[in-house]
């Protein structure tokens, strides 16, 4: 089992589909999808997706790896779980989309790496790891500037009024970011998480 998902050589080459079944969280139930469309119909942001989950799943079967991993479907899921509770084949759609998003970033898909969600996640992690909490200034700052210097400034300026209001209402502190107690314990948790993730990449899906 490779860390990187295989590229299909032709339509319905099952290399990619099998990799997803075996490596993506919930992927083992993906085979049960009968393409009824309940998931896509249930999705509150379905119209904002390149493909609804249903079609995305068919594309996985068809071996359309690039189209799947570069689609915004992976990033637009809001985890409402409507699809999951309604799916007649009990496919955990939400888990699958989230895990595919991780795969897309890991494999360096431009649409994934550069997606708002990916950059926001990086900013979130940066703050969380460093301070044990999310500091609005650090998260937004890092997120805004991840698009480049001028874009960062522009976005920052655009939101200046909101920021100021938050400060006035004491929703955003000034001064140095607060740190949590027990950062060492947090580190242990995060290290364990990394270890699990590494194991996943190695092909196993164990806990």
């Amino acid at each position: 089992m490779t860390t990187t998902s295989p590229q299909a050589t032709r339509k319905y080459d099952l290399g990619f589909a099998r990799w997803v079944y075996e490596n993506v969280d919930g992927g083992d139930r993906l085979a049960l999808c009968m393409q009824c469309g309940t998931c896509s119909g249930s999705c509150p942001v379905g119209t904002q997706m390149d493909y609804g989950p249903r079609k995305l799943f068919m594309m996985i079967r068809a071996g359309m790896k690039d189209a799947v991993l570069s689609s915004n479907t992976l990033w637009n899921c809001v985890s409402c779980y409507n699809c999951v509770v309604r799916c007649p084949r009990q496919v955990p759609v939400t888990y699958i989309l989230h895990d595919l998003a991780v795969v897309a970033v890991r494999e360096g898909y431009k649409e994934a790496v550069e997606s708002d969600n990916a950059r926001f996640s990086a900013a979130f992690n940066f703050s969380a790891e460093r301070y044990g909490r999310t500091d609005e200034r650090i998260v937004t700052g890092k997120f805004y500037f991840s698009e480049g210097l001028s874009a960062g400034f522009k976005k920052g300026m655009d939101n200046m009024k909101i920021a100021w209001n938050m400060v006035k209402t004491k929703r955003m502190p000034l001064g140095l970011p607060h740190k949590i107690k027990g950062k060492g314990e947090l580190k242990t948790i995060l290290d364990k998480a990394r270890e699990i993730e590494e194991r996943h990449k190695g092909g196993g899906k164990g806990n």
Binding site: T38, R54, K55, R86
Partner: peptide, 21 residues
């Protein structure tokens, strides 16, 4: 399509929602 929901429309008529596959 397996409809995802049936809800009341503004005029009270049932509205069938889903994705045409």
């Amino acid at each position: 399509s397996k409809p995802s929901a049936i809800e009341a429309g503004p005029d009270g008529r049932p509205v069938v929602k889903g994705e045409n596959t």
